[in-house]
């Protein structure tokens, strides 16, 4: 059978298209599978106790992860308080004055830092905070997460400030505002929804981080009060429970995974919806 050159080319085109569709489908199989199993197995372990009770010792049924849920919220809040202000300020610097060689170095450091494995950030904060204060603490965990957030927040702030039209700044300066107030009141406020999106995506990412917490916030079977005590968190609990040999703990690990996944995906999806109306076409 003979094909014309034209048919052969058409055929190759079709094959590649099919291969690309297949690749996209293959990439999505794990997502569907993870969402399905976490929902199906997690929902059985969820009840009121899960949200209100402390963990029970091995062998006793029941108990919950109230302390870990609270711990995760506490760690994420700490990370936001410590990580967002410097991130935004560094981003403002890069957008406003970042054309210098120093600006390039900052930008480059932020990009490189974003690729540093989270477990090495754990070691870093361990030697910086835990060794100095001689204890695992919620504060150390919060700092570790903040370090992970910093580069993302910096680069997002910079990029979104650059999208704000220069004419807005010119108008503000024309009305007699000094440069710094033009930047803060006009540029930063215009870019704020976009920056909020970037920050929320960063928060969603660190909320699920486990590795840097293992030797900073550590874990706690009880309500760790205050900032200077070890604290439980959902990700670390999922890990400990999943690798344990107890059936009951496995059930709770799935339930915790469901709670964590819902939290992370809600943050992630609402962040994306937030920015859509403003720069939808981009």
């Amino acid at each position: 059978m003979m094909f014309s050159a034209y048919q052969r080319r058409k055929c190759a085109d079709l094959l590649v298209r099919m291969a690309c569709v297949a690749a996209s489908l293959i990439a999505l199989v794990p997502l569907v599978s993870v969402l399905y199993y976490v929902t199906a197995r997690g929902i059985g372990g969820l009840n009121l106790d899960f949200f209100t009770e402390l963990p029970k010792p091995v062998g006793e049924p029941g108990g919950g992860m109230a302390n870990a849920i609270w711990g995760t919220l506490k760690l994420v809040l700490l990370a936001c308080l410590i990580g967002i202000p410097p991130g935004v300020m560094a981003g403002v610097y890069l957008a406003e004055f970042g054309h210098s060689r120093f600006g390039k170095l900052v930008r480059f450091s932020a990009d490189v830092m974003a690729g540093v494995p989270s477990i090495t950030v754990g070691i870093f904060i361990y030697s910086l905070v835990v060794l100095q204060t001689k204890r695992f603490s919620a504060l150390a965990g919060g700092i570790a997460l903040a370090v992970l957030m910093l580069p993302t927040v910096t680069r997002t702030t910079e990029e979104l400030l650059r999208l704000v039209p220069e004419s807005l700044r010119e108008a503000a300066l024309g009305l007699g505002l000094p440069k710094w107030r033009a930047t803060l009141r006009v540029m930063l406020r215009t870019a704020a929804p976009g920056i909020a999106t970037g920050v929320m995506l960063a928060v969603a990412r660190v909320a699920g981080e486990t590795a840097p917490l293992l030797f900073t916030a550590f874990n706690n079977r009880f309500w760790g009060s205050g900032l200077t005590e070890p604290t439980a968190s959902l990700p670390v609990n999922i890990y400990t429970y999943a690798v344990s040999p107890y059936e009951e703990w496995h059930r709770q690990a799935w339930a915790a995974a469901l709670v964590l996944l819902v939290l992370v995906l809600l943050l992630n999806i609402s962040a994306r919806l937030l920015v859509r109306p403003r720069v939808g076409g981009r």
């Binding site: 410097p86 300020m89 560094a90 403002v92 610097y93 890069l94 406003e96 004055f97 120093f102 600006g103 170095l105 900052v106 450091s109 932020a110 490189v112 830092m113 540093v116 090495t120 950030v121 070691i123 870093f124 030697s127 910086l128 370090v147 910093l150 580069p151 910096t154 000094p178 440069k179 710094w180 107030r181 930047t183």
Partner: peptide, 28 residues
């Protein structure tokens, strides 16, 4: 403008933290 001066220096100082954090990580 004093405000501009302070603003620029303050943000530059914080931007140094980013380089500093990476450097401190290496040193630690």
């Amino acid at each position: 403008n004093w405000g501009d001066f302070v603003f620029r220096r303050a943000t530059a100082l914080v931007a140094t933290f980013v380089i500093g954090a990476l450097g401190a990580m290496a040193v630690a």
